[in-house]
Amino acid sequence: MRHICSFVAAVIQLEEQSVRFDFYQESQRSKPVRELLKQRATLPRHYFDYLFHSGVLEVECDPPYQPVAAQPAAIGMNIRSLGSNVVFDMCFAPQTYKLWQNTDAVLEDISLSADLFEEYVYRLGAISRFRYLGRVDDPLVATQLGENDMIEFKRDFLLSKTGIIKSIVAFANSNNGNLFLGITDEGTISGVDHEVEHYGDPDKYILAITQYIQDKTVPLLTPFPKITLQKVQGKYVVAIFVEVASELICGLDKNGEKYVVIRTNNRSVVVKDPHQIGEIYVKRKLGSEISRRLGLL
């Protein structure tokens, strides 16, 4: 059976351990259409051959290409933006549970129509996650949008530590999110200048926030939240962008006990139901779509 779409690799250079190629997407609808996705891409040969053995990749090579024996591999789609087209990175790792932490190879900035993207995710059994989707770098833009499922405000760091960890854990377990310190619940820029002064300089202040997040979350957040200090209306504001984690992330209370938090209805909610915690764990490991198709959710 010929699928409606296939990746095509026009081999430029073939070596024992790697392949260099021009990467295309070919659709078989009313008429064949070939689109260049990336010029002079390079992949380790066992990942290149994994795509070939999976039936998603056709290879153009002279003499005809001879793949090596299939080896285990995991593929993840790191989504950068959504719309009629999906822009994503295709990431490769030896095993699924190591995918995001130990990516061996990446094909960056690939763009496909949404329906073709979903088709490849399904055929590859790939895990998808959002990268940078919903990221808000400008605190003033955040105040205009207001608090929602991806934006939350805190007045400061020192008096909001517990709430900060709950928010970060909730974003990591639910969806990408932006946490701003130095903004009131109403969206007024209050600043954290007094805290920066308390720590002596901006670098020490950011280091203190970073260290606290590391100490109060397990396992280690990967990727770790991006923390920046910005001047807004003459006042310091901290912007923390949290990406969805591939692992189930827990916070640690004052006694060192673990707790799980998710984001729902613009709030960070502690989850105690073991079944619900299990669902979160499965989604983190396999991705929501794959979990549904396997009947696990």
Score class of each variant (00 low, 15 high):
residue 77 M to P: 00
residue 69 A to T: 11
residue 225 P to L: 00
residue 95 Q to H: 15
residue 281 Y to D: 12
residue 111 S to G: 02
residue 82 L to K: 09
residue 259 Y to N: 10
residue 261 V to C: 13
residue 159 L to I: 00
residue 93 A to K: 04
residue 101 Q to M: 03
residue 63 P to L: 07
residue 140 L to S: 14
residue 57 L to N: 03
residue 240 I to E: 07
residue 113 S to T: 12
residue 266 N to Y: 06
residue 166 K to H: 15
residue 67 P to Q: 08
residue 296 L to Q: 05
residue 60 E to W: 06
residue 80 R to H: 15
residue 295 G to L: 02
residue 210 T to C: 09
residue 42 T to H: 02
residue 6 S to F: 04
residue 250 C to Y: 15
residue 117 F to Y: 15
residue 52 F to R: 05
residue 157 F to A: 05
residue 140 L to R: 05
residue 105 A to F: 00
residue 226 K to F: 12
residue 273 D to N: 15
residue 236 Y to G: 02
residue 89 D to Y: 06
residue 282 V to E: 07
residue 36 L to A: 10
residue 56 V to T: 05
residue 220 L to Y: 01
residue 39 Q to I: 07
residue 287 G to Q: 05
residue 11 V to M: 04
residue 104 D to C: 07
residue 17 Q to M: 10
residue 6 S to I: 01
residue 6 S to W: 04
residue 210 T to G: 11
residue 141 V to E: 08
residue 210 T to E: 09
residue 62 D to G: 01
residue 290 I to C: 03
residue 100 W to R: 14
residue 80 R to I: 07
residue 51 L to T: 08
residue 232 V to R: 04
residue 241 F to D: 04
residue 205 Y to R: 01
residue 6 S to E: 11
residue 202 P to E: 00
residue 148 N to F: 00
residue 186 E to T: 11
residue 7 F to W: 14
residue 141 V to L: 09
residue 157 F to K: 00
residue 179 L to Y: 10
residue 122 Y to I: 02
residue 222 T to F: 04
residue 64 P to W: 09
residue 184 T to Q: 01
residue 68 V to L: 06
residue 271 V to W: 05
residue 231 K to E: 13
residue 118 E to Q: 15
residue 42 T to D: 04
residue 201 D to S: 11
residue 53 H to P: 06
residue 37 L to Y: 07
residue 223 P to K: 00
residue 231 K to T: 14
residue 57 L to D: 09
residue 117 F to N: 10
residue 65 Y to C: 02
residue 226 K to S: 11
residue 164 I to R: 01
residue 171 F to S: 10
residue 164 I to E: 05
residue 283 K to V: 14
residue 269 V to D: 06
residue 166 K to A: 14
residue 257 E to N: 13
residue 174 S to C: 13
residue 180 F to S: 04
residue 208 A to F: 12
residue 185 D to S: 13
residue 45 R to M: 04
residue 270 V to I: 14
residue 52 F to M: 02
residue 97 Y to H: 05
residue 215 D to V: 01
